[in-house]
Design a protein around this nucleic acid. Structure first.
Length: 514
RNA sequence: GUCCCCAUCGUCUAGUCAGGUCUAGGACACCGGCCUUUCACGCCGAUAACAGGGGUUCGAAUCCCCUUGGGGGCACCA
């Protein structure tokens, strides 16, 4: 039975590095019908917080890495917060003390610190001098009775220890550099390398899959397992994720938390897929995988040994692909939050009633979809459907050089005025045609729209009257209506804009921009 | 300083364990073209790497050694 765990410190948001480690654990657990456990290493009171824990758990949920045991749902091996486990350890410490596998050390922190600094300034490696290793039992008992503070040190008689790693093979360490390391501080607080070993054992963890920054901790943990008579779990140290500068990915590299990516409009599917491909790859050249497919394909043994640089560009590319492949309904559902978060919405250019007009709004959303790399991108592409720069305040009114150039063409005035008068004709016809709601005699104004075919017809007329054709014709209309030299397909844009709206935009352009 | 890990295009990687089929394959980005009277999408194409030096071998990206480079640890932090 496979049991794995992810053990983050709740000291901030879930980092993509941790997310990737969690993912490998998760995939390994699921493909082996194993158990995926979340354990909070929250003993650093100064930096840990419950809020952070909550947000991390939310991030795991968002990533669709559901845990089988953890601080929220509990389980048979709890508690799942280290601070709540503190009571479990003392009996093991007592046992080690009784067995003489550990001993009290009365050396003061200051004294040890001094020694360390001295060695360092001489460029010599520091080793504990084992001053308290062989005190006789009576002295020890007496000093303890007198209330003298002491730490507990683990005896490390072996000269070297071998760590068996699934990814890296056997790694040998000399114990010399950390001989007789401290396992419990004078205040009774057990030290990390001691606690993880016990926690992992008590939780019956079978495979410890974690970042390779833990490699040099591992021999200490192995020594703890041995001293306690516990069986050593299997280890798999996976490579770090690096930033562009090839240093360990951290906050100073910008967006590095799962929450960051979620906010920016990255899809959970894309993030998972991308993360899975850092330091791991399938045998085939396939790059797109759902979580279920990853569970099938993932091979812990084939995880690479070298670190990977996090490349947002590739993530964006992948994300764009996922956006385009989504079911339209799903797409609509998931993008709405980003529409409402956009400046167009907060500035009132897009309103709830625009969104409520589901048929039109869906069409608009679908026409901009190909442009998106992230869901957050919608805002910038939605603009032409709801406002024209300059027409309303708040959006920069400056025309791009390309757009200006187009309006400077000799035929521009004729084209715009011609198109405007054609639209006005349509609007008048529309009114007499009964496009208004004649049944109920309400005052509700119903917008008139033209379809793509009508639009084509109108451009023909304008072409004939103005003599402009090709770019001079179509691009002029585009700039006249949208204020931009690029944007959505004209036939689609025009069919999604009310005639009245186009008329007012053209009026503005003719009056202010020619 | 010391210990440990790592080393193929700018980036993610295949190939390394079982040496020849590798004039090193794919993907992202970049550049060029096609499609599109715009942008994007899509399609096609180009540039681009075995860190260096020694071995072993008929033959090395692949095995061995050294050097160099990068990363991580060396706490009474986790």
């Amino acid at each position: 039975m496979v049991r794995v765990r992810i053990a983050p410190s709740p000291t901030g948001s879930l980092h993509v590095g941790n997310a990737r480690t969690a993912l490998f654990n998760y995939l390994f657990a699921r493909q082996n019908q194993g158990t995926f456990i979340i354990r909070m290493e929250d003993t650093d009171a100064a930096r840990s917080s419950r809020e952070s824990e909550t947000s991390m758990l939310e991030d795991f949920q968002w990533m669709k890495m559901d845990s089988d045991e953890g601080p929220l749902q509990g389980g048979n091996f709890g508690p799942y917060r280290q601070t709540e486990r503190l009571g479990l350890y003392s009996k093991y410490t007592q046992m080690l003390l009784n067995n003489n596998k550990a001993y009290p050390c009365f050396c003061s922190a200051e004294h040890l610190q001094e020694q360390r600094e001295q060695k360092r300034s001489n460029n010599q490696p520091y080793r504990y001098d084992r001053a308290c290793a062989n005190l006789d039992a009576d002295t020890v008992a007496k000093r303890i009775k007198q209330g003298e503070p002491y730490a507990v040190r683990l005896r490390t008689p072996q000269e070297h220890v071998v760590v068996h790693d699934i990814i890296r093979g056997d790694i040998q360490f000399e114990t010399d550099s950390f001989r007789d390391f401290i396992i419990v501080r004078p205040d009774g607080m057990p030290v990390y390398n001691y606690v993880v070993a016990m926690d992992d054992h008590l939780m019956e963890i079978t495979h410890v899959i974690r970042g390779d920054d833990h490699i040099s901790n591992t021999p200490k943990q192995v020594l703890v397992y041995d001293a306690l008579g516990f069986t050593v779990p299997k280890f798999a140290h996976i490579p770090m994720i690096l930033g562009k500068d090839h240093a360990k990915l951290s906050k100073r590299h910008g967006d590095t938390t799962v929450a960051n990516f979620k906010e920016k409009g990255f899809l959970q599917e894309a993030l998972i897929n991308y993360l899975a491909l850092l330091s791991w790859s399938p045998k085939t050249e396939r790059e797109f995988f759902t979580m279920d497919e990853l569970i099938q394909e993932f091979q812990l043994e084939s995880v690479s040994k070298s670190a990977a640089v996090f490349d947002v560009d590739k993530l964006k590319w992948m994300n764009g692909n996922y956006i385009r492949q989504m079911e339209p309904n799903e797409y609509y559902k998931r993008i709405l939050d980003f529409v409402r978060a956009s400046e167009l919405f907060t500035n009132g250019h897009i309103t709830e009633s625009d969104i409520a007009n589901e048929e039109r709004f869906t069409k608009i959303l679908l026409t901009v979809r190909d442009n998106l790399e992230t869901l957050m991108d919608v805002g910038q592409y939605l603009q032409p459907f709801f406002t024209m720069p300059g027409l309303t305040k708040g959006i920069n009114a400056e025309l791009s050089p390309e757009a200006k150039e187009i309006l400077e063409l000799p035929t521009s005035k004729d084209v715009l005025e011609g198109f405007l008068s054609e639209l006005k004709k349509v609007e008048n016809e529309g009114n007499s045609d009964g496009n208004h709601d004649t049944d109920t005699y309400t005052d509700t104004y119903i917008d008139t729209y033209i379809d793509a075919q009508t639009y084509k017809g109108l451009t023909k007329i304008v072409q004939k009257n103005s003599g402009a054709k090709g770019k001079a014709l179509f691009m002029t209309i585009r700039v006249g209506i949208s204020g931009e030299h690029k944007g959505p397909d004209m036939a689609e844009l025009v069919s999604l804009l009310s005639v009245a709206e186009m008329i007012s935009r053209l009026d503005y352009t003719i009056a202010n921009r020619l």
